[in-house]
């Protein structure tokens, strides 16, 4: 599904190298967790995979379903089935959530050769998905993320994921700023979308999210490289021992 080889990436402005030879293989249906200390490059990895401006890949390659991911535009990556749940979802004042979601969904459907959904069809679909995720349908009438609480923003991200049905989703610190109830609801949403064909990359600083979203593999990212990989037990070990050991290494 996703194959990252020797990925080096730096920030364009100051040429500071963040990813320094990262390797990762993710197969269909797998859930991988990336953990690591602050500043290890976790969010950079998500941004580089999604194609955000401001980063420069200096070395290495990323193949997504056999295709050269790095040569695609941001929206082409989205159409190919890559979804990034943002750590800080962006507010867009004046743009109604429903209109935003419908535009996203239809643009993706067009790219995938599917017919567009009309207003009524989409409203029905959005309401059904919102209900599944226990999201108050009133949220659909509000401006995108504007004035949303932290929990609402993260739930809205999961709603978008449910509508766009990606094959590969990156959850960037989705647990940050959530209380236990919100964390459970968000995790249930993610778990509901797990299947044999869909893969996840869960980026997190804390182990608690992994109590709710059980990963198949856990990796430790430190100083731009994956320094250790293992099963779910690795997360527990990290919770106990912290990242001190890795920060020193870095």
């Amino acid at each position: 599904m996703l194959s990252i080889q020797n990925l080096h990436a730096q920030i364009e402005d100051d040429q500071k190298m963040i990813l320094k030879g990262l390797n990762l293989e993710i197969n269909p249906g797998e859930v991988h967790a990336i953990m690591g200390p602050n500043g290890a490059g976790k969010s950079t990895l998500g941004n580089v995979l999604a194609g955000k401006d401001g980063y420069e890949v200096t070395e290495g390659s990323v193949f997504f379903k056999g295709e050269d991911l790095l040569s695609l535009e941001v929206e082409e990556r989205a159409h190919a089935g890559l979804f990034l749940a943002f750590q800080y979802p962006v507010e867009i004042p004046g743009v109604q959530m429903l209109n935003f979601l419908r535009t996203c969904t239809n643009e993706t459907r067009i790219a995938r050769g599917l017919p567009e959904l009309n207003g009524m069809e989409f409203l029905k679909l959005a309401r059904a998905k919102a209900a599944e995720l226990k999201i108050n349908p009133d949220m659909l009438k509000r401006s995108v993320n504007s004035g949303f609480s932290g929990g609402e923003k993260k739930r809205a991200e999961i709603l978008q994921m449910a509508l766009l049905e990606p094959q590969f989703a990156i959850l960037d610190e989705t647990d940050s700023g959530l209380d236990i109830d919100a964390l459970r609801i968000v995790s249930e949403g993610v778990n509901a979308l797990r299947d044999a064909k869909r893969s996840f990359l869960v980026i997190t600083h804390y182990q608690r999210l992994l109590d709710h979203i059980k990963p198949d593999h856990v990796h430790v990212l430190a100083d731009g490289q994956i320094v250790r990989s293992g099963g779910p037990e690795l997360a527990l070990e990290l919770e106990e021992r912290g990242y001190v050991h890795y920060e020193k290494a870095a």
Binding site: D53, V90, C104
Partner: peptide
């Protein structure tokens, strides 16, 4: 804002 543009494009809009 670049962030708004990136967000929309990540969701599939050109």
């Amino acid at each position: 804002s670049d962030d708004q543009l990136f967000y929309c494009r990540q969701r599939g809009m050109d």
